[in-house]
Design a protein around this nucleic acid. Structure first.
Length: 577
DNA sequence: GCCGTTTTCGGCCCGACTGTTTTCAGTCG
């Protein structure tokens, strides 16, 4: 939501500037602002609706930050922020983006060399003036020089879309698992939490021979450069500029290490605080008691159990209330792959961009054990890919024949309609009535003002033929932002019109986005469907991504329509239509 | 700056790697 993102951005500025003011990221004030920023970012209500007292009720926001938020909402500015901006101008803040340039070093080069921008620093490096500063040397100067030239290409704040990072991680995991010294290997970090973008790839290995694992890691074909190499920890850069961190632990410590390396940082801190409150210590090696005895280490489940918590699935580990929920036994009932009994958004080569035949798509659905599938070709308004009315009638006859050949599968003849500027869709009312299931999606006009997008989406949902809105925002992760609209109004309309919201499984969509799913986490009045939007038989397996994304959004199984059995689903659809 | 089934004051997660040190500071996750 726009206003929450805006406030979170101001709090994020306070994080950066306070890091400089305090000289460390570890300062309690910095961490407090970080918590407040994350709390606002994941808030389910618009922050503008809350009084200072209500803001203080939010975990991580105290009197001081609540006051600053109200100050910003009422005056458009925060005095404290303005003061810090005056002390640390944007050019200097930019210097902190360079890997290796932390607050201490930034202030050192400012005070000693008058550096106030990245350009200044580049010049100072060229003049070899850094090497004589206390704590720095020739080697540091060279590393900073390299880092400056890489800035923008892969600075420490660059994030990689999951669709790019996942194959790299899979390749590395595959190659390492073939190493004889490797007992076990798994990717961790934000990739395991299934974040939409990844900072770097984290890989964890269990081995009794760390040195040979490090050797193998450094000489992987994807490694274009070794950034760091220690006894248990190394980092490489791939040719595409993605950083991969490797950690090696003993096999009996794998659970503790996986927990630590998966994060998030906020989740880890909460777990470690919980350990401390019992007089224990949790680190990446084990959970130990006051006498140093190991209470749990081998598996994550053991550690959660010892801490009195339900197991928390990785996609939930963001420090947004999951630890408290795990303590109270109120974690969401998460959907699993085995729960999905149908796929309600599937194309075949009848659509211009479909790549498998209708017959193959149907056979593949049956082979996967699906109980129902909706064939939803593009509709006529999508000029290149859409079907004319004659083609729709023609395909319907083919589908009728396929039904006879696949009695185990309920085949719905559907369509993916295009939502026009005013919310209208393809075809007329009578023709639409011939479909069993209609997805309606935005495929155009992504830049309309939010009020128009809101009206457009609501108008489409009010159309009785529309069963579900496809890929709600239309975003392509890392490539195209989604459309902007009034989320609460759209959710309310979805509830009122009983229109489902699709969770699109494609890795560059994952749409509805997780932050919007989180905003809806207490809305039992909304129905979702997890759909692959397959254009090829191989894409049914993308359901796994949608499941993990739904988990990340705290969407419980009961709110997902395609967890219903065939009979339940058809009854539900009949009652709805 | 936040927070309280030990606390409204006094704590706040924990450890690895690098480069510069000769026992540690800075950075990172």
């Amino acid at each position: 939501m726009a206003i929450n993102d805006e406030v979170a951005a101001r709090l994020g500025e306070l994080v950066t500037l306070t890091t400089l003011a305090d000289g460390t990221k570890q300062s309690f004030r910095v961490r407090a602002y970080e918590r407040a920023r994350d709390a606002v970012r994941t808030l389910s209500a618009p922050v503008a609706d809350l009084t200072a007292a209500e803001l203080q009720q939010i975990d991580g926001i105290g009197a001081s930050t609540a006051k600053k938020i109200r100050e910003y909402l009422e005056t458009g500015t925060i005095a404290k922020l303005d003061e810090l901006r005056g002390r640390f101008p944007p050019g200097l803040v930019e210097v902190m983006r360079i890997p290796g340039m932390g607050p201490k070093t930034v202030l050192l080069v400012r005070d000693e060399l008058g550096v106030a921008s990245v350009d200044d620093l580049r010049a100072a490096v060229a003049a070899e003036r850094l090497r004589d500063l206390p704590g720095l040397g020739k080697r540091s100067e060279e590393k900073i020089a390299v880092a400056i030239e890489r800035l923008g290409l892969h600075g420490k704040d660059r994030r990689t879309p999951i669709i790019e990072a996942l194959p790299v991680a899979d390749e590395i995991v595959g190659l390492l698992s073939a190493q004889p010294a490797v007992d076990r290997v798994e990717s961790a970090g934000s990739l395991r939490r299934f974040r939409e973008t990844i900072g770097d790839v984290d890989v964890l290995v269990a081995s009794g021979d760390p040195e040979s694992v490090m050797d193998a890691f450094g000489s992987l074909p994807v490694a274009s450069e070794v950034l760091a190499r220690g006894e248990t920890k190394s980092a490489i850069l791939t040719g595409s500029g993605l950083q991969v961190d490797l950690r090696v632990v003993a096999p009996d410590q794998f659970g503790a290490a996986l927990l630590y390396f998966t994060g998030s940082k906020a989740h880890n801190i909460e777990l470690r605080q919980r350990a401390i409150s019992r007089g224990w210590i949790l680190n990446e090696y084990a959970l130990t008691d006051e006498d140093g005895r190991v209470l749990a280490a081998a598996t994550e489940a053991d550690i959660y159990g010892e801490l009195g918590l339900e197991y928390v699935a990785p996609p939930l580990r963001e420090g947004v209330g999951e630890v408290a929920a795990a303590a109270q036994g109120t974690l969401p009932d998460l959907v699993q792959m085995g729960d999905l009994h149908g796929d309600l958004h599937v194309h075949s080569s009848w659509s211009g961009d479909g790549r498998s035949s209708l017959e193959d798509m149907v056979a593949a659905a049956a082979a996967r054990g699906l109980e129902y599938v909706a064939i939803t070709e593009h509709a006529e308004d999508l000029a290149i890919n859409g079907l004319s009315r004659d083609q729709v009638r023609e395909e319907r006859e083919v589908i009728d024949a396929l039904r006879a050949a696949h009695p185990e599968l309920a085949i719905l003849h559907g369509a993916e309609l295009n939502i026009g500027r005013d919310g209208s869709v393809d075809y007329d009312e009578d023709f639409l009535a011939g479909f069993d299931w209609c997805v309606a999606s935005v495929h155009s006009l992504f830049d309309l003002p939010p009020e128009q997008q809101t009206r457009r989406l609501i108008a489409a949902m009010e159309n009785p033929a529309v069963d579900v809105i496809g890929h709600l925002t239309g975003r392509r992760i890392g490539r195209r932002p989604g459309i902007e609209f009034d989320v609460d109004a759209v959710f309310a309309a979805a509830s009122k019109t009983r229109t489902a919201l699709e969770i699109n499984c494609h890795l560059d969509r994952l749409d509805v986005p997780a932050d919007l799913l989180l905003r809806a986490r207490n809305r039992d009045d909304l129905t979702f469907v997890i759909s692959t939007d397959s254009h090829h038989v191989s894409e049914y397996s993308h359901a796994e991504w949608g499941v993990r994304h739904a988990q990340r959004g705290w969407v419980d199984r009961s709110r997902i329509a395609n967890t219903m059995s065939r009979a339940e689903f058809l009854a539900w659809l009949g009652a709805k239509r």
